[in-house]
Design a protein around this nucleic acid. Structure first.
Lengths: 346, 346
DNA sequence: AAAGTCGCGGAAAACGATTGCCTTGAAGTT
DNA sequence: AACTTCAAGGCAATCGTTTTCCGCGACTTT
């Protein structure tokens, strides 16, 4: 097949293949798709003719006839960013395995663009649609009564009947806290993103609850700020000053993002605190660039975005095949331990 | 349009629109596409019928007839990563403006997958193909004699007749060096990635040449290592120890990446050197996460990947329209000055 | 009043595949 | 010998558009 691909100028059609093989187009179609009842010799002859001409079936013509395009649309509501990529990779992976192609649409948080893209996807008769985007909170459904199934990935639809796949962030926070408890820390602080941000709230709440379940309190009230290293540094300063004031100093910080954690790490380091000796540190996102460049490397919570993308794609494929998939799924997180929480004797 | 979109179950066809408007399908087609000669009243009637039914033309059927699909394929040879994203955004931007959709293919550095994707793109009758990927060196052409135009973005084809759009990395290095010279630095070091990496070599060569053009030498031989912060820290150590040995210490470091630069910044800082007071620092990539989190914020060279993606897409559109576009284009870089090279009195 | 224009819109042939139905010839049955 | 049965493959409709060509009336034009 590949051999001839390189010589193609005007791609061959199935009737040319049929002519070369000395059969009708219908027969050629059956031969190439393994349908109908044909002699083995005939199938072979058609196959050879197709190879010789470098024949590649026209997907549009096939789709027109069969009603399936083996294409799905992927709409990223915010611009394609750090979070969308693993999602896309996961989805592309699962879809590619099912011979399904992906039409990429970057709606950039603009609902006009979104509706425009929705229209073109519908016009292209995609078999289904995946909607992704940064997760601040549930978003309104992209449309009602669409002729194709829709799955929301990472972001969730505000209609609980829609199919959404999201990370279980509370689970992630619980894992982080339990890990800190397991290595013997008791005076734990939480530094995270802005209070109005859904993820920050959910993670903070789960953090407090998990501590409470162990008869503990946060060492200081949750510190809310930006999702940035600068805020991490600043927050560390606050922790250092208050921590020395009353009782024992904090012995662990769970951060709402790796960037915050890295900022905290730097500030603690510069203040002469050892990590994890004096203070253990856990981040969130497991963003390679951050966790690996931190000193020491950061223990972090991984939301498995790629898995979310893959799951969303698999659900979409199931829906396309008629299986019911309504409802929301929250996928567990994974804690990736690194040096920032390593116990001494280990 | 949107109003009815939400009620669609089985999408309407043009013949249903035509029936509702009381015209033939041919006339309906002309009315909706502004062709033929029709009374204004007829056009309006058809348009209203289409709106009422929520009609969206079937792209497959149209493509079958017209031979154009308004779709291009985008193959990322390495996995979708940090560099691909701005490229994709730029390309998607330029293409979307031309009403062209993007089929995303992640070939993951696997030539089998690449050929498979090429086949499906051909089968889908894309109007053109963009090939992107991390740039280590020129890559072999994806195929010869394809029935559609191909543009390589960021990565370049080893066949000089193919159309490639790449950053002019030498230009970037020159800008960095000239900037350092302009703020009065003379003892400049260069810390960059592995010697076998094309980008590292090109940037290093341009750095040396630019200094030579000003009758200067590198303060120390170029330091090659990994593209990592850790290497940056290590290299800074080397610079500090050699720099104090002979003559005046270095007063600037130009780094082959922002990550390296950040590592250098940290190490210098910890060694008590002030940036830019004692040593000015320039990075490469202008990667927001790195340049903004560095202390001080990093001056960096921006390759304008988004512009490269956009240019590639525009060239592809031109090629699709029959204009000749062969050959390689190197786009200039841009220097983004920040605190790490700020002159005192400024 | 006959002939040439023109504006409008219909009919039907594409585009390239798939698929249900039909024909054909040969083999097996009685 | 006449019948059924079955495998093999052809025929033609079909998917939903676009587009070319053509017809038909109404209007000039002399």
């Amino acid at each position: 097949m590949g051999a001839v691909l390189s010589n193609v100028v005007r791609p061959a059609t199935i009737s040319e293949v049929a002519a070369l093989a000395g059969v009708s187009t219908g027969t050629a179609s059956k031969a190439l798709n393994g349908r109908g009842s044909l002699r083995a010799e005939t199938r072979l002859r058609v196959q050879q003719a197709a190879d010789q001409l470098g024949f590649i079936a026209n997907a549009a013509a096939r789709g027109l006839q069969t009603g399936r395009t083996y294409t799905v649309g992927m709409i990223t509501t915010d611009s394609i960013g750090r979070f969308s990529i693993p999602l896309m990779i996961g989805a592309e992976d699962a879809l590619g395995a099912g011979q399904v192609s992906v039409l990429l649409c970057d709606a950039r948080d603009d609902s006009i663009r979104e509706q425009y893209y929705l229209r073109t996807l519908l016009s292209r008769k995609v078999d289904g649609i995946i909607v992704t985007g940064r997760r601040t909170q549930a978003r309104p459904p992209i449309a009602a009564g669409l002729p194709v199934p829709v799955v929301y990935a990472f972001i969730s639809s505000s209609n609980p009947a829609d199919c959404s796949v999201v990370p279980d962030e509370a689970d992630g926070a619980r894992r982080a806290v339990r890990h800190l408890l397991a290595i013997g820390r008791r005076r734990i602080a939480h530094v995270t993103g802005p209070e109005h941000h859904h993820s920050a709230r959910v993670r903070a709440a789960a953090t407090a609850e998990t501590l409470a379940a162990h008869d503990l309190d946060l060492a200081t009230p949750t510190l809310h700020g930006e999702w940035s290293e600068a805020w991490g540094r600043q927050a560390a300063g606050i922790l250092l000053s208050t921590g020395t004031g009353l009782g024992a100093p904090i012995d662990a910080v769970f951060c709402g993002s790796d960037q915050i954690a890295r900022g905290v790490a730097e500030a603690l380091r510069e203040a002469g605190r050892s990590i994890p000796g004096d203070v253990a540190l856990v981040g969130f996102d497991n963003w390679d660039v951050m966790v690996e460049a931190s000193r020491p490397q950061l223990t972090s919570v991984d939301m498995d975005l790629e898995g979310i993308g893959r799951t969303a794609a698999e659900l979409l494929l199931a829906a396309i095949n008629g299986e019911p998939i309504a409802g929301q799924r929250a996928l567990p997180c994974r804690l990736v331990p690194r040096a920032s929480t390593e116990v001494a004797g280990h």
